[in-house]
Design a protein around this nucleic acid. Structure first.
Length: 424
RNA sequence: GUGGGUGUAGCUCAGUUGGCAGAGCACUGGGUUGUGAUCCCAGGUGUCGCGGGUUCAAGUCCCGUCACUCACCCCA
């Protein structure tokens, strides 16, 4: 087998966005920062896991597991899967390393790529980027509210305004089976197409958020989970809402909301943005009180979210929010001739050692071209050095914003530039 | 997995009933080896997504295929 360059050249695998420049990391790091502020510790996890972890944790019947996973056998014959979501891996790690043996709750946050084999679309990718948090081991509605507040703070820190937080409660194991049976009886009487009937058989809840008007009309009067909560789940839900008010986090209740992952219980939520087209969810999550036990650990509760970094970035673009392009560097060197180049290389090195972002016109370009490069770099100052300056023992410090230029001593030039940058 | 739309220069796109492949922007150099956003000049070897067909002649018409894209579905 001899590998060839394909016609048209190599391309990234289907459905994978690539980000060049500071925009992506700025969005991701802003979301992460709010989790850090609330005391969530970073956890770095494997990008692939035992396939069974997701089958058991996320649920065999979910679309994510049944048709969207990147699964393959490794060379040792083990079935592994590129992670489609973050919670199962975090919970596995907590159980495996006994992280729950210390102080509770265990508060962790993560960021990185996830993988789902789906047809790409606006805001939907096969490699998607998420920032997430998990709070495990304390069953307190105040933790649900904290998790929601962290996500909301992240979006607000990005400058986003055109989104809303929708919440509901999916109840708990004590009343969900009865509710499910009642909903199934309701759905059986409706006039639905075969794919939808199939969905109703697999997970009747999922039919509730069908977008088609003809289906929505029939759903009028459908039994809702929020009306069938156990006393405990109802009290929990009411408490979450009170704490959200205390935190100043705005929300709307959406009793038709459904989650596609099986582990959710009680509080579930979604952040919805209106400027993104069809894939409008920029974040989602909820409580998962049975998951620790389901994966072989102690019966501890948990709550968390996943935020879509790709979609948050699209939302920023849609709102034209924030991220004014800060310059790549602060200082740009313009050498005229070889001896000036050697001297400037040293000065740029000294600037970098002093923590100043600095670059240089490479390629022995003409003065005009080098100045153009300086302009494009976004630098505050250009340092112009030629034979004339070398003889005079000076270097020209040019303020690129107002065009003014002053000669400074060549010796100690880096320190002088440092002072110029910090002095204004 | 199912539909619709689109594939022409690095980017955004024109390209008429089939008749020499274009514009703007960007980029590089020069006008001005001592000054960047303006101005002027110069600079394009594009598998016209790919493969086949029709034709004297195909970017244009036909068939196939791939990619991208939007929507269904699903979810971050």
């Amino acid at each position: 087998m001899s590998a060839q360059v394909p016609p048209g050249g190599f391309a990234a695998p289907k459905g994978i966005p690539e980000y060049v420049g500071p925009e992506f990391t700025a969005v991701r790091d802003t979301l992460v920062r709010e989790a850090d502020r609330a005391g969530y510790a970073h956890i770095e996890l494997p990008v692939f896991e035992d396939t069974a972890l997701y089958a058991r944790g996320v649920g065999e019947s979910t679309d994510v597991v049944s048709k969207e996973m990147y699964s393959f056998d490794d060379r040792g014959g083990r079935s592994v899967t590129l992670r489609p979501e973050g919670t199962a891996g975090v919970v596995r790690s907590v159980i495996e390393h006994g992280l729950d043996k210390g102080g509770l709750p265990v508060k962790l946050r993560y960021a990185g790529p996830f993988f789902r084999y789906e047809r790409p679309q606006a805001g939907r990718f096969r490699q998607l980027q998420q920032v997430g948090v998990e709070a495990i081991g304390v069953d307190d509605p105040a933790l649900d509210a904290e998790v929601l507040a962290v996500a909301d703070a992240g979006f607000r820190a990005l400058g986003l305004r055109g989104y809303r937080l929708e919440i509901t409660s999916l109840g708990d194991a004590t009343t969900r089976p009865q509710y499910r049976a009642e909903l199934t009886r309701f759905l059986e009487k409706l006039d639905l197409d075969e794919p939808t009937r199939e969905r109703a058989r697999i997970n009747p809840l999922r039919v509730l958020d069908d977008k088609r008007p003809e289906v929505r009309a029939q759903l009028e009067g459908a039994p809702l989970m929020v009306d069938h909560l156990s006393d405990e789940a109802a009290a929990h839900h009411a408490a979450v809402k009170r704490y959200l008010d205390d935190l100043g986090v705005a929300y709307v209740e959406n009793p038709w909301m459904v989650r596609g992952l099986d582990y959710y219980t009680k509080t579930t939520f979604e952040f919805v943005h209106d400027g993104l087209g069809s894939q409008s969810g920029i974040g989602g999550g909820g409580r998962y009180d049975g998951l620790m036990a389901e994966l072989g650990g102690p019966a501890l509760s948990g709550v968390g979210f996943g935020l879509g970094v790709d979609r948050a970035l699209l939302a920023c673009r849609a709102e034209e929010a924030g991220h004014e392009a800060a310059g790549r560097v602060e200082v740009f060197g313009v050498p005229l001739g070889e001896s000036a180049k050697e001297r400037l290389i040293g000065i740029v090195g000294a600037l970098r050692r002093a923590g100043i972002r600095a670059d240089l016109a490479y390629g022995n370009r003409g003065l005009k071209g080098a100045m153009k490069a300086a302009d494009r770099s976004g630098a505050r100052y250009a340092l112009v050095l030629g034979d004339r300056d070398l003889e005079a023992g000076e270097i020209q410090l040019k303020d690129l914003a107002d065009g003014s230029q002053t000669a400074i001593a060549l010796d100690g030039a880096a320190a002088a530039v440092d002072r110029a940058l910090s002095g204004s």
